[in-house]
Nucleic acid binder design. Structure first.
Lengths: 213, 213, 213, 213
DNA sequence: GATGAATGAGTTTTCATTCAT
DNA sequence: GATGAATGAAAACTCATTCAT
């Protein structure tokens, strides 16, 4: 049956991508050689070129896959909660700082790819895409909040809130990158909500934010 | 004359370090080969091993140098302004987002090294050092502000303010990394001050912050 | 039905051979990979081993086929003309220099195989066979002419005439290989006939030779 | 002393070129791998890329070198003889068919490169250059002869003679390629002179030509 | 019989390091 | 001390062949 073959093919492709991500997380991009990848995937040397046409394409695909996984994770969280703006924002902030998403592996991978983004168009593109998709989700939520809050220039306020929130989350990831073991998720969350509650006191609550887990 | 010799030695060391930084900024760490470095520095191949004992050490030194340059830049700014907490914070924020410090070259270098930090202890150490030194400056300033503001737990407030401010600045750097050409320094500054004014309304002023440039 | 099967088999074999010849003509022997061949033949990868037992055998077969095609072309021409020695020679010379036989594709293929002949016995053998068959035809024709011409040592004269004529034709092919676009068939033909008319003035005529086309 | 270093460098370059020619002669172009070359030259793997920037460039250089060697050989012969047209032609013909020039190694190399010429611009260029230089020498000699012979259209006659002579010599090389062991230099020479004496009876003599060796 | 995904030996290339000059 | 030619281990890639489906 052809389906069986196709299925193995697909599984092999995925194994290679995951081997790249594991290796990038553990050893970094520069140590992620073809030998390292096939050893982790337990597949043959030629397979990389068979499926991806070369190591660089495989690494690009891995960056795309990883960026998609991140976005899907966040998006899945949004489906589990209410549809108000503040529920969305809360979910995104908590999700982005949760163990499931903000962990050693993801952070390693993400900063490794970022470091290469300047010199590899494909990686820059996926880096950008992840960013743009998330930015959109966050902006839409803040736009609703700003409208409810009847602020002067709701569009501008929503933009600033988006910018500030994402900047802070980024900063928290960097904190985690540098000190994964002393990083305090509650503190990080609290600080983001401090910013949010200062911008939208009627929507966000500093104390409530502490009721994390 | 030994002094003359020593001087040339020192100049060559620096040329190599700067060649590394230029190359990392333009081509990324993985393309920064020994050949690339000596070509930029216009020095001989053996020089790297003579002065640094190998390429890896040179790159580590370049990371250290770059991190020092950053800190020195910020520190120099502080000497040009008043000594109140809010003056320090303002200077650090404006400085960190200024063209002199936040520019394509520095951002490229910084993210390239961050991407390697996980796998190279020396780079991680310098990354950390830069971070710790800055954190200290910022914390000291906020500690004074928090004391003046007579908040409940000034130490905790100062820590949160430090954490939040640095996180946001980090996030702004990432913004710049991804979209250097559409990045708006005024907007970035305004958003940081929005956070600061919400935490310390008596010390920071959202409008004042706009009087940039 | 076995006949039907057999027919498809035969067609596939031929498709592969022709794909090899096309590829050798266009890309050269070293670029004639299995992938290139099956892509041109629009057949599956396994087919080559099924029908020929490996790529090398297929290439050898292609060399044999090509050499046979050449000889058959010349031989067919001989059937269309009179049976005197000079008619045969004229036909062979004109045929060998005609567009139908001396064209870019054939020349490319022929020199490509020649270049490999030294290291591949099978190709050398077919190269030789083509040569020997043609030499035989030409010698037989010259033997008749030499006999008619009542020269001293007709056998020796026929051998020299054969040798010289074939050498010149070879040289004309090389000319064509190197400068296919500036090659002048009439000039080439005229020069061969100059040689022939000098050896057998009663049989070959320099002017008559110009009545080409 | 720098000269010593430079000298070794030059010797290594040459060793590599000669290793390529030996390998091409013995094993053919497709079997001439980097490993084969460095094994013959007894030099290190990296040297090929150090001196030539890659295997392909080295092979091209070898083709250029070989073509130059051929031309130099012929040219040197011309310096050892008189300056009349017929002396030049005689020398070129005898030289081109002599053991020193027409031998197994040269023929193997030459046909191997010819087979690749279609697909490698650099090789085609050197192939052409050798051809053009020789053609020039031969044409100049025939032009003088044709003028002396007071033929009708001396330019045209010289061109035909050049064309015919070179074509025949080419053909003789092919003969040698296919049957190096049964090849008879005297016979080959005699046949070329038969052509020459038929074109310029006053200048070339069939018998004289036999006084070879 | 036919297919084409998979294999891995062998190829070219890169590049940090060495060391004779 | 300084140079840069030389080294060779390790990298990425190619491709004829195999073989489960």
């Amino acid at each position: 049956m052809t389906g069986r073959r196709q299925e193995i093919r697909e599984r092999n492709r995925l194994s290679l991508i995951e081997a790249v991500l594991d290796s990038v997380a553990e050893k970094g991009i520069s140590e992620t050689s073809v030998s390292e990848i096939i050893h982790r995937a337990e597949l043959s040397r030629g397979m990389i070129h068979l499926h991806f046409g070369g190591k660089d394409n495989l690494v690009d695909e891995a960056a795309r896959y990883s960026s998609e996984q991140y976005y899907n994770g966040i998006y899945a969280l949004l489906e589990t909660t209410g549809q108000t703006g503040q529920e969305h924002i809360e979910m995104i902030v908590r999700g982005d700082l949760s163990e499931a998403i903000l962990n050693k592996k993801n952070v390693s991978i993400w900063y490794a790819f970022r470091g290469e983004a300047r010199n590899r168009a494909a990686i820059a593109a996926f880096s950008d895409t992840r960013d743009a998709k998330l930015r959109n989700l966050v902006f839409n939520a803040f736009a609703r909040i700003a409208k409810e809050a009847k602020v002067d220039d709701p569009n501008q306020v929503a933009r600033d809130a988006t910018h500030g929130t994402l900047a802070m989350l980024e900063g928290m990831w960097t904190d985690y990158l540098l000190h994964p073991d002393s990083f305090d998720r509650n503190e990080a969350t609290r600080i983001v909500f401090r910013f949010l509650s200062s911008m939208f006191p009627a929507h966000f609550d500093l104390d409530g934010a502490l009721s994390l887990e």
